[in-house]
């Protein structure tokens, strides 16, 4: 038996975080302040997400942790180990087998279900921050639904690049009310936010929690003549041949060689196990 309280945080802290989560679920897209605790990892490594996961986990849960879609990167491995040790919950890399999925910067390709919870790690929860540095003012803007400024950012994008160049952390409007930062997920993932699972967002350094209940309306902001476009690299995965997944560009040599592979490693492996092949795997097979 470990010497930690279940999932590291003490019970009072978890209650406090759960209250913030419930409030967030009751007011979709609204940033609920909470008393973020010091965690045994640096800010920027997912302290917000970890606290939300800790307050959400039960001993029966199965946890999956991904970083940019991958289960095997340092951040994902550390957090998975952290909960294995402090909560002794089961862990998995399989999306459909998990009940709680903590993520950094991606939504899994596989559709989530009503009995799953997706926990996002959020660096900067305030979508208006880069245009309006005053917290007092941004709070007022949310309260009074003054969101003209958000479109100024998109306007500037088009003026500078000829199209909306924001490709991640693309702002959305939730249930026609709050403008929300979806965390730095690629805009390709934005349409997936209208999903069956509960989505929770935790920002540790900024001390904010917000949430989307299942089937919440989430609309990406745009202009009539420059509509939102959830595009991705126009390639198929070099490993599994998937054409519908978000891809990472991998540089393979110093002569300009590159390939595109699924950023969601579980999705890619599953497809390969089912016998799908991509350009690269075909060649090696041949």
């Amino acid at each position: 038996m470990s010497d930690y309280n279940f999932a590291y945080l003490d019970e009072q802290t978890k209650r406090m975080i759960r209250r913030a989560i419930l409030k967030g679920l009751a007011i979709p897209g609204y940033q609920v302040p909470f008393a973020s605790r010091e965690m045994p990892m640096p800010y920027g490594w997912g302290t917000g997400g970890v606290q939300v996961s800790a307050a959400t986990l039960t001993p029966e849960d199965t946890l999956k942790v991904i970083d940019q879609g991958a289960d095997d990167t340092t951040n994902a491995v550390s957090i998975r180990k952290f909960f294995e040790k402090t909560a002794e919950v089961g862990t998995t890399t399989e999306t459909s087998a998990a009940t709680v999925i903590q993520t950094r910067h991606r939504i899994p390709e596989e559709d989530l279900s009503e009995d799953q919870i997706l926990v996002y790690q959020v660096p900067i929860p305030e979508p208006l921050r880069f245009l309006e540095p005053r917290e007092t003012e941004t709070r007022k803007m949310h309260a009074l639904e003054e969101y003209g400024l958000m479109h100024v950012k998109l306007y500037e994008d088009i003026a500078k690049h000829g199209h909306i160049a924001t490709s991640y952390a693309y702002p959305v409007k939730v249930e026609d009310r709050y403008v929300m930062d979806p965390s730095p997920i690629p805009k390709f993932d934005n349409p997936k936010m209208e999903m069956s699972a509960i989505q929770l967002f935790g920002a540790g350094r900024e001390q904010r929690i917000y949430a989307l209940p299942p089937y919440t309306k989430v609309v990406s902001l745009d202009f009539e003549d420059h509509p939102f476009d959830p595009s991705k690299a126009p390639h198929a995965c070099a490993l599994c041949g998937a054409e519908d997944s978000y891809l990472d560009e991998v540089i393979t040599d110093d002569k300009g060689g590159r390939m595109f592979v699924c950023s969601d490693t579980d999705y890619c492996e599953k497809r390969r196990a089912e016998g799908h092949t991509g350009d690269l795997t075909k060649e090696t097979a041949a």
Binding site: L131, E146, Y147, G148, L149, H151, V152, Y155, E156, I158, A159, K160, D222, F223, E224, D225, H226
Partner: peptide
């Protein structure tokens, strides 16, 4: 930090203009 056009356009966008 915003272009001249964005500065002028902000009030329009604030009252609902959505055509770039």
């Amino acid at each position: 930090g915003v272009s001249a056009g964005g500065n002028v356009g902000e009030r329009l966008m604030a009252v609902g203009a959505r055509n770039y």
